[in-house]
Amino acid sequence: METLERLIEEHPFCHGMEKGYLELLVGCASNARFDAGQYVFRQGEEANHFYLVRHGKVAIEIHAQERGAIILQTVGEGDVIGWSWLVPPHRWMFDARAVEQTRAIALDGECLRRKCEEDHNLGYELLKRFAYLMAKRMEAARLQLINIHGPLD
């Protein structure tokens, strides 16, 4: 548990979080490892976790029948995967596939949802962090939408 606590504390997502909340997180946490090619989750599955990536690379993607998998974004060290655990109906909206061997800390969403309901301060603390994360993702998605790396043909 010592190690897990330190890993959580050191993850950018948790920077500056109160000790008490960190302990609560540790109570819902476990180590996770994904081999290259392994799916962290698939679209439509129940979303009961989120992941603090320690190292490796995970592709967030959509599978289109005729085009195969389209990678929307890759996440790696210091990033977070998944917020569907937080929003009803608690099902994954995309696939997440490990591109290379990836180590992460899995946080039990059911456990956290319960704790957030009991302690709204914890809920607010987590929502603030997820709101930031979601805003960054949306900003990046919008920039991708307009092809910021080069003019359109």
Binding site: G68, A140, Q144
Partner: peptide, 23 residues
């Protein structure tokens, strides 16, 4: 380096270049 969009066989990063800066 990163790209805006890629197919499954791409091993590199996907996302806008700004996401690389903080790392």
């Amino acid at each position: 380096y990163t790209v805006d969009a890629a197919a499954e066989d791409w091993r590199g990063n996907v996302g806008v270049v700004t996401t690389l800066i903080s790392k």
